[in-house]
């Protein structure tokens, strides 16, 4: 059995959180609140470090252009003063504009052009045929200029089935992931804490 206080705290936190499956209880609530508090405190510390290392220190060393993002960052807090709350819209607009611009620029190449290119494959195997037909049929499901009736309706229905297969794979992956997480905790409890397994 471990003699490390950290391992004991982690073990009690794990048991406390898992105990929710049996019934909501005070230990679960204590651990849950601790988790939220510690996460917030950790994020605050890391954020403080980021501002210190990436903005304040270099600025004090003569990189005065960093004053612009620092001032813009401070302006975000004007939302807490009713009279000047509108000022916060300036840095917020910049944040949204830059973020969206960056994402869209990359998205068109990576998730549209290159994904379409990946569909240009020889139809010489079941996998390839299923992939190309599946993509076309699912795209047809979202084509609303033709009423989904008769054969168009049947094709759209097949598109829905293909999507269902995709959702099923995602769900199975999620279930697998949850099991893996639980196994990880069991390995921690039985190994690191109790020392029953290696």
């Amino acid at each position: 059995m471990s003699t490390d206080i950290g391992v004991w705290i982690a073990a009690f936190a794990t048991i406390g959180l898992v105990s929710f499956l049996f019934k909501e209880n005070p230990l679960y609530r204590v651990i849950e609140n601790m988790y939220v508090g510690i996460s917030a405190g950790y994020a605050l510390t890391v954020g403080y470090d980021n501002i210190k290392n990436l903005a304040v220190k270099p600025m004090l060393q003569g990189k005065y252009s960093l004053l612009i993002p620092i001032v813009l960052g401070i302006l975000l807090y004007t939302r807490y003063v009713k009279r000047y709350a509108w000022v916060a819209k300036i840095p917020l607009g910049l944040l949204m504009g830059i973020g969206t611009g960056l994402a869209i620029r990359g998205l068109i190449l990576s998730q549209v052009v290159n994904q379409i290119k990946a569909c240009f494959i020889p139809l010489n195997s079941f996998d390839n045929i299923f992939m190309v037909l599946g993509t076309l049929i699912v795209l047809f499901y979202f084509f609303f200029s033709i009423e989904h009736k008769g054969s168009a309706g049947n094709l759209a229905k097949v598109g829905r089935w293909v999507m269902m297969i995709g959702f099923g794979a995602s769900f199975a992956g999620t279930a697998t992931g949850r099991i893996s997480l639980f196994i990880g905790r069991l390995q921690f409890l039985l190994g690191n804490w109790l020392g029953i397994i290696k």
Partner: peptide
């Protein structure tokens, strides 16, 4: 994580 494998499979294909 296993839950994202189906989402990322198209990137392996491409």
């Amino acid at each position: 994580i296993a839950g994202l494998v189906a989402d990322y499979a198209p990137y392996m294909q491409s």
